[in-house]
Simulated scan of single mutants.
Amino acid sequence: MNTTENLSMGEGNTPLVSLPTLARKWGMQKIWAKAEYLNPTGSYKDRIARTTMLEALSQGCRGWLGTSSGNGGAAMSAYGARAGLPGILCIIATAPAEKVASIKPYGVLMIPMLDLGPSDMLALKKIAEEENLLLTITAYAFNPEGMKGAESIGEEISTHGSVSHVYLPTGGGGLLVATAIGLARGGSAAKVICAQPDECSPIAQTVMGTIAQPNISTCTTKISGLQLANPPDGDLAVEKINASNGWGVRVTDEAAWQMQDILAREEGVFVEPAAALALTGLYQDIQSGKVTSSDEPVVVLTGSGLKDMTRYKPTSPSISFDIGQVGKLVKESLSTKGVSE
């Protein structure tokens, strides 16, 4: 297709979805969710992929070269195919199977990698330059033009004038920086809150003052997409958080997984663990009093729960029932859920 007019697949302009049940249970008047899981390939990275491929076409690149734990790879592969640009993707070997599977239909070359640290990214930058490929890493440090696509998240949130806080799951820092830029451009005074896994929180720890620079030696979190010990946009993220009078919050993997289930069961919204981690950060801040009932926070729900089904692997039933037993089981289920006749 490779024409700039036809690259869009309906990305962006995602709704703010209210979370009334959780708001009531947590003593809040309103809680909002930015539904980025509704983008074409199921995550906010579609916004970045479109602007990235526009840049590749404008530069006359032969194709693109990127890294991914899954979401970015699917987005770049889809929009790369639409642009008629071949892609090569270095993907973390531990990426969830569902994310890897969602990339395969697009026919890009996937290269499994044991690690993708700062030195690896610099090496990829050199390869991209030598081969006339656009480097599609989703960070301002490597792909500043492409990252502009995510700034619309903040601009869209800013049209909802009463937003007090914006909670963002944070790995490399690019999403947070882009959202903060968009919020400022839209005139919003919302505080930007960085939610990171407890076991991989270099940006949050820097904002908290427990470390001097946003880099740590190791990351042991299992939350896909947030496993960056040396975030490429870490310094810029710290700057944006402080400028908004925001802060950092650390969340355990277990708490994020629990919140993933709570959100699905209470509000009918199924998101990836990284998105649930940001909501957990908000819950913790409500409990501690940092966010009050009169505030109106937004949580950016970055991707669909179908992106990472690791916790929900299907199992064969160990026992089966006949139709005569179904009525009893239905009554028991409704009773345990407190549903009256």
Rank of each mutant, 00 (worst) to 15 (best):
K45M: 07
I88V: 11
Y79V: 02
K25S: 14
L22H: 07
A78V: 06
R62I: 03
K45N: 04
G27C: 05
G10K: 03
G60P: 04
Y79T: 10
S18P: 14
L54R: 13
M9T: 09
I92H: 04
S68M: 15
L85A: 00
I92A: 10
R50W: 01
G60S: 00
P20R: 05
Q59E: 09
E36P: 07
K34V: 07
L38N: 12
R24K: 12
S43R: 06
S18C: 03
K34H: 13
L38C: 11
I88M: 05
L16G: 03
W64E: 02
M53W: 05
L38I: 08
T41H: 12
R24G: 00
K34R: 14
D46Y: 08
Q59L: 13
A78S: 13
A35C: 06
C61P: 01
S68D: 14
S18A: 13
A33W: 02
A49R: 08
L19K: 00
L65V: 11
A23I: 11
W64T: 00
T52F: 12
M9G: 09
M9W: 11
G10N: 05
R62T: 08
I31L: 10
T14V: 03
A49P: 08
G27P: 10
N71M: 06
G63I: 03
N6D: 04
E11R: 04
P15T: 01
G84A: 14
